[in-house]
Design a protein around this nucleic acid. Structure first.
Ligand SMILES: [Zn+2]
Ligand SMILES: [Zn+2]
Ligand SMILES: [Zn+2]
Ligand SMILES: [Zn+2]
Lengths: 152, 152
DNA sequence: AATTTAAAAGAGAGTTATTCTCAACAAGCT
DNA sequence: AGCTTGTTGAGAATAACTCTCTTTTAAATT
């Protein structure tokens, strides 16, 4: 699994390894995710608003490019919740969690489970893959929706 | 977990329970997925092409509506692979599998792991949710992409 | 078998998250 | 300081998916 904490310098080093550059935008976005409350995740739009609130005008194009880049580097987790857009959060194995989603009302519960990461480690190692992240997504019907007779 | 095999009759019964109807379109689409090779999954577009090849003209609207409906009933699994669209396959616990995806080239390996379903069962039961499906998605870098110096 | 009612299908427009394009800019090397 | 090339920003383009509305039809009722 990738390292659990990135500084501007370690990000710079890892970018340079691949011939890429550390820009102020990338540094600021990394900083936002580093300082996000545990368990909080942002969509591209939410990240854009948060950046503006803090006085940083970074274009949506750059935001989309940066979170995708960081996800592919293993710095961010790309979460597919039951919505029509992606969420991102910093990738720290210690705070690893997974999602239990109601397919009717989309209510989502986060839960932890240590064996999931072990399965991910074992499986990727066996195939020679370099693990970045693993996510268990459970689709189910929540208690409230089980009681309701309403369609969907 | 839901039943592992649906006939037209059992689908009809389950639809009627909720005041819904069994249409020829729904029956045909169920049949397609029942007869799909194990491990094969279809996008909405792919399903549409396959239906046309077999002489069934079902509109894309209906296809999108039907796979979404069947996923919410637990009949189909909705897979979020590393592409820009969803895939569907029949939901049979016996053939349950999960996905190891290269974030650079999107190559996907399917693998089985019995404990994943157990974790899903335990977690949903604990929260009072009715389990429909659970999927472990591993994001990683494949051996070929580890060797390549190319960006992305 | 005919009637009735509401669910579902089909066609196409509409939505929107995300990607693409390209000119202007700037990080980092010499 | 100058050069090379990766990156940004703005907006257009893309495409998966949903919505709207009219027509059709499943299936319950008479
Ligand atoms: Zn989360
Ligand atoms: Zn619910
Ligand atoms: Zn599969
Ligand atoms: Zn690869």
């Amino acid at each position: 699994m990738s390292m659990s904490f990135y500084t501007a310098d370690s990000l710079k080093a890892e970018l340079h390894e691949r011939g890429w550059r550390l820009t102020p935008q990338r540094e600021i976005i990394l900083d936002i995710f580093q300082n996000l409350a545990a368990g909080r995740h942002l969509s591209a739009e939410e990240l854009c608003e948060l950046l503006q609130k803090e006085g940083h005008d970074i274009s949506l194009s750059t935001i989309y490019r940066t979170v995708k880049l960081m996800a592919r580097m293993g710095i961010l987790r790309e979460l597919e919740l039951a919505e029509d857009h992606k969420h991102y959060e910093i990738n720290q194995p210690h705070h690893h969690h997974h999602h239990l989603i109601c397919v009717r009302c989309n209510q989502t519960i986060e839960f932890k489970n240590d064996s999931v990461l072990k399965i991910g480690d074992k499986t990727s190692k066996k195939e020679g893959y370099h693990l970045l992240d693993c996510q268990l997504t459970i689709h189910a019907v929540c208690p409230a929706c089980q009681r309701s007779i309403l369609p969907v």
